[in-house]
């Protein structure tokens, strides 16, 4: 019996040229090359991707959900950052 698991990797896939890589899930692999190969088999069996990134899960740093309010709320009261905040006279076109 193996005593230690293969490390966990997060998988990101670009579904087509021109789009971002998007997180799709995770998998175990001994190294990066194997992670990419496994990701091909697990996450792109039906042409779901044309490019794969893998990152070892332990290297992902995340914001803390408990801080979400303090962290994200400041953007909430800045309505002037949105174009709809401004009233444009009816006679003005192309703005």
């Amino acid at each position: 019996m193996t005593q230690h698991e293969w490390p966990l990797w997060e998988v990101f896939i670009r579904s087509k040229q021109g789009l971002d890589h998007k997180h799709v899930g995770s998998l175990h692999a001994a190294d990066a090359a194997m992670a990419i190969q496994n990701a091909r088999d697990v996450y792109t069996r039906r042409m779901e991707g044309i490019s794969i990134w893998v990152v070892e899960s332990k290297h992902v740093h995340a914001s803390n959900p408990d801080d979400a309010a303090a962290f994200f709320d400041p953007a909430n009261d800045k309505v002037y950052r949105h174009p709809t905040f401004y009233e444009v006279p009816d006679s003005i076109k192309h703005m």
Binding site: T2, H4, A30, D31, M34
Partner: peptide
């Protein structure tokens, strides 16, 4: 499959 899993780790 145990030896394969171990060998892959050792190789990595």
């Amino acid at each position: 499959g145990a030896w394969v899993r171990e060998a892959a780790l050792a190789h990595a």
